[in-house]
């Protein structure tokens, strides 16, 4: 496993930008900036005509590293140490669980907690706990 530096200032600043984005989406469209909720609504069947806007929001996230590359000359390269089989399993679980539980880190963890939603608090504590337990098992037991 790769060691990473503790980056309190950059992380607080980045977090504030994520929050600003959530506030702007609420102001502009009246929608919760939940990435899993926006993503699943890109898949058929469609219940409204907001497809283009949702796709644009996700594309904005996708191109962000390229904008960083253009501005700073270097793009941050993610360290992915998980093998292909486990990555696919992880993707299935993340996709299924986020839709089954109506939200992910952004929808429940940021927007929901900011709205003081008890459901989002339950969801956030639950996924933090199972994620920490999973990392403990994969790194320290198996």
């Amino acid at each position: 496993m790769m060691a990473t530096d503790f980056t309190p200032v950059a992380s607080l600043l980045g977090g504030a930008l994520i929050g600003a984005s959530a506030v702007m989406l609420m102001a502009a469209k009246g929608r919760i900036a939940g990435v899993s909720g926006i993503t699943v609504r890109l898949l058929p069947p469609y219940s409204d005509s907001e497809f283009a806007g949702r796709l644009a929001f996700i594309l904005g996230i996708v191109v962000a590293p390229l904008v960083v590359l253009l501005v700073t000359g270097t793009a941050p390269v993610p360290t992915i140490e998980t093998g292909p089989a486990l990555l696919v399993l992880a993707g299935l679980l993340v996709g299924f669980g986020s839709v089954w539980g109506n939200g992910c880190t952004s929808g429940h963890g940021v927007c929901g907690l900011s709205r003081l939603s008890v459901r989002s608090l339950v969801a956030t504590l639950t996924f933090m706990a199972t994620a920490m337990a999973t990392v403990f098992l994969t790194r320290h037991v198996f």
Partner: peptide
């Protein structure tokens, strides 16, 4: 849902 999501996130 979040319990399943968390396992995938942790993997």
């Amino acid at each position: 849902g979040p319990a399943i999501f968390g396992v995938g996130w942790g993997l």
